[in-house]
Design a protein around this nucleic acid. Structure first.
Length: 516
RNA sequence: GCCGCGUUGGUCAAGAGGUUAAGACGCCUCCCUUUCACGGAGGAAUCACGGGUUCGAGUCCCGUACGUGGUACCA
């Protein structure tokens, strides 16, 4: 392992839309690694493809990281001594390094048009070739500085003929490296193609930019998804010729997060199709206006979101599955990150959220619940009262959205009653009983659950009525349905006058039904 | 097609040659509770296949199958 005293890692997203949960996991692993070794976590925006620019996407990424509590130490927003942190603002830098590679004979100009490339692939296909790549097999048949004379090349360049710069990878060599997660990995350069380094618009491709910026930003460890593994030999080759392999960060290719059912990488489409979020936060596409759901808006707490992501590909080797961010920083280690992809399981994700809602004190998320209740039409909520309610019902809530169902009866008298639960239990005797019970309640000076319960039980035994039936009826009166914490606690929380009001209202309603 | 990576219950997974192959989610049964949850006790369910190596293989090697990623002037 490299020097762990100067750990610098980066998350390098392309701002083209919503932030996928796999992206957040990459952020998380970066963050955990950086914090574990007192290093720096950097956010670098890889916006080299101008055709894919999406309004608001970068700002959205910032918001997601902020919600998750994974703040970068250096970023376009926070600044830092290795800026700018937006690749579009570093355009000039790459040109220079591309030139160096050309001068060393490791890269070359290519003037092929899109049509030329299409024709090349068609020809290769017709020949029955295994490979349709622009590589050592075909480059000498193409229009580039290897096939043209020096003069021809410089004339084309002088006349501003559209061109790209390609890396030149010769066959017959092995490119090896040690992946921190997978161990030794070897590629044969026979199968590696001459990737474009500099596009015709002067912007670098990922392949050049990632190497140059990782070097200039002194990145020590580079984490990225497994989908990058096949292009690793290109990057290593560039490293070798530009900066030297000893300066290269150590690579760690993270396993993919897969669809729960069929095959393939988890995509936002799968979320839409199967009814769960894939993005961290809601994302609205500025062009189509299409909204894609996020974990935040689906009622997840960030602690749970991070926790479930961390466990999708890592565990600490014990039976513990619940980790706070600090605990993860402490326990995280790359050699316990898995090599194989994991199918995403939303049921388990919800379990993590439920665990965290139970674990967290009410004030940690009461503001979010406040807003959710407000949106459901319950307004002017007292904050202290809300926290009491949250503590009372949170073990029944899998997501923050469930608080609407589980808590609203504390704020508004039930409009409907579970008739089936009352059926067969309500009659004239019960009606009389509840009249008596209300009188008893009236006389309680301190309206506490123990006292309410005691009085109720006492009255039950005096009238030879089963306490259970009364509890059920009282619950329906106060709540409207068969749910919630202990009924006497509900009464206490509601307060005496509200309790009495609800009893009276419900009793009258029950009387109106034919089975009185 | 070619190249890379992977493969322990339905899912997440522990396991680093000798285990009755942990645990979690989900599912089922029961207890608690005249509610819903929480909690508790049980249950069903797994080493892709074939060859080696070895006294012994889920663990090491090879092959096959399957999965997955890449194969763009996208990242």
């Amino acid at each position: 392992m490299k020097d762990l005293n100067n750990v610098r890692v980066r998350f390098a997203p392309s701002p083209t839309g919503g932030l996928h949960l796999g992206g957040v996991r990459t952020v998380l692993y970066n963050y955990l690694f950086a914090k574990k070794y007192n290093g720096k976590f950097i956010l670098r925006i890889e916006d080299t493809d101008q055709s894919r620019f999406v309004e608001g996407a970068e700002e959205y990424i910032n918001q997601c990281l902020s919600w998750c509590g994974l703040q970068p130490d250096e970023s376009p927003l926070a600044g830092g001594e290795y800026g700018p942190y937006r690749q579009s603002e570093r355009k000039g830098i790459y040109l220079n390094y591309a030139q160096q590679l050309i001068d060393k004979g490791v890269a070359y100009y290519a003037f092929d048009t899109t049509e030329d490339l299409e024709k090349m692939r068609e020809d290769l296909k017709a020949e029955g070739s295994h490979s349709l790549q622009y590589d050592h097999r075909v480059r000498l048949k193409m229009k580039n500085s290897l096939t043209l004379s020096k003069d021809e090349t410089s004339n084309l360049l002088k006349s501003s003929t559209p061109h790209v710069v390609r890396i030149k990878i010769d066959p017959g060599q092995k490119i090896k490296f040690t992946d921190l997660i997978r161990g030794e990995i070897e590629f044969d350069t026979d199968n590696v193609d001459d990737k474009v380094l500099l596009k015709s618009d002067g912007m670098p491709t990922y392949h050049l930019a990632v190497v140059v910026d990782d070097f200039l930003m002194k990145i020590s460890h580079a984490f990225r998804g497994e989908e990058w593994l096949p292009s690793a030999p290109v990057h290593i080759h560039i490293w070798q010729h530009l900066f030297g392999l000893d300066k290269m960060p150590q690579w760690a290719h993270l396993p993919l997060i897969l669809k729960p059912d069929g095959n393939g990488k988890l995509s936002k489409r799968d979320g839409d199709r199967l009814g769960f979020p894939v993005y961290a936060m809601n994302w609205t596409d500025p062009l189509s206006g299409e909204l894609t759901k996020g974990f935040k808006e689906s009622g997840f707490v960030p602690q749970a979101f991070l926790n479930l992501l961390a466990l999708l590909g890592w565990n600490d080797g014990t039976e513990n599955e619940i980790f706070s961010l600090n605990e993860m920083v402490e326990k995280f280690s790359l050699d316990r990150v898995h090599t194989s992809g994991a199918k995403f399981n939303f049921e388990k994700a919800k379990w993590f959220n439920h665990e965290w809602i139970k674990k967290l004190p009410a004030n940690e998320f009461s503001e979010d619940v406040y807003k959710i209740l407000e949106e459901s039409g319950i307004s002017k909520i007292d904050h202290n009262f809300l926290e009491t309610i949250i503590s009372l019902v949170k073990e029944r809530c899998t997501t923050l959205l469930d608080f609407v169902e589980q808590a609203s009866y504390f704020f508004q008298s039930p409009e409907t009653f579970d008739i089936d639960a009352v059926k067969g239990k309500w009659n004239l005797t019960k009606y009389e009983f509840f009249k008596l019970l209300s009188k008893q309640f009236e006389n309680i000076s301190e309206f506490k659950s123990e006292i309410i319960e005691e009085k109720t039980k006492q009255l039950c035994s005096e009238n030879s009525i089963k306490i259970g039936e009364v509890q059920m009826l009282l619950r329906i009166m106060l709540v409207g349905k068969k749910t919630g914490p202990g009924v006497f606690i509900i009464a206490e929380t509601l307060g005496k006058s509200e309790t009495l009001k609800r009893i009276e209202k419900a009793a009258n309603y029950f009387n109106g039904l034919q089975y009185t």
